[in-house]
Design a protein around this nucleic acid. Structure first.
Ligand SMILES: [Mn+2]
Ligand SMILES: [Mn+2]
Ligand SMILES: [Zn+2]
Ligand SMILES: [Zn+2]
Lengths: 156, 156
DNA sequence: CCTATTATTGCAAATCAATTGCAGTAAGTT
DNA sequence: AACTTACTGCAATTGATTTGCAATAATAGG
């Protein structure tokens, strides 16, 4: 369970918001899905539990959760055709980053404390304040890279 | 001049492509603009030189230049409202990265050779091949961070 | 230089994700 | 239980990008 529903309720309440059945359902779906789902994937899953829930509610809720600091989003060139997509992601206590396999689209998370000096160096050199870093590595995962049986290329 | 038009012509020719007046114009516009323009900004500029040139030609040409390895694109949460936008960027001999000011939206490029060990560490740990890294730093640039005269907040 | 081939263009229609206005519904308050 | 108003569903809308197709023009060959 990665998005604490109880904390979310508190955060919602704190801003004069309301914890509705739809919001709870979307939070639970985020936990259920785990990975880095798109808004549309979240909608498809949520809809199985409540077919009346509307896509716009999903978008509105995700935006809300983001401003409340409970989820974040990132742009990944993932998906079957490596095309761009917005993914939603529960916020973690420490900043994390992503590896995307250009073969199968799998997303692997990792931490990179070594990024700190890079941020600091840029800040020092440009007199800027660096608040956040988004690092995405693109490459081929071990499964796709191992040509055993040519797993990746079993197309036609 | 950052996109070598002559090389582009060669690259185009090499794939059975044709160097049209439209493509040349778009290449020159990329050089003229310099920064990290969106497809729409490119279109607006190009249109000043040739009002008949169509947006779809801009999109098709940019896609083509990208597969030819002459330009790349990146997703930045830049713009006045910090909203997501696709930016086009001439490819540089060495990989470069971006800082985005959340105040004014300025994009500053920088190189980060210190990223190499991070890539290597991930590759070693996961048995993956890492081909490319996209790092984006978000923060406040020196101009926006200096509260002299409250330059940033001179709104209403 | 002229002609044939076909990649590329302009145009309009189609997609697609995401947003918005509004009236009805329901969460939280008293 | 009644009240206030945040939130939802819905349908229409937006805005960026894509696509089908007939016309155009870049290149190759003669
Ligand atoms: Mn993640
Ligand atoms: Mn750049
Ligand atoms: Zn893979
Ligand atoms: Zn700034």
């Amino acid at each position: 369970m990665r998005v604490p529903v109880l904390e979310a309720a508190a955060a919602v309440r704190a801003n004069g918001g309301r914890m509705t059945v739809q919001r709870r359902l979307i939070l639970e779906t985020l936990n259920e899905l785990g990975g880095h789902p798109t808004a549309e994937e979240i909608y498809r899953t949520v809809r199985q539990h409540d077919p009346t829930l509307n896509p716009s509610t999903v978008y509105r809720t995700l935006t809300w959760l983001e401003t409340a600091g409970l989820v974040s989003h990132c742009h990944l060139d993932a998906g079957p055709d490596g095309e761009h997509s917005e993914r939603y992601d529960p916020v973690t206590p420490v900043e994390h980053h992503h590896f995307v396999c250009t073969g199968c689209g799998i997303v692997i998370e990792f931490e990179a404390p070594e990024l700190a000096p890079i941020k600091a160096a840029f800040a020092a050199e440009h007199g800027a304040r660096v608040e956040r870093a988004a690092l995405t590595l693109y490459g081929v995962c071990s499964a796709c890279g191992t040509p055993s049986e040519m797993l990746c290329l079993e197309a036609d």
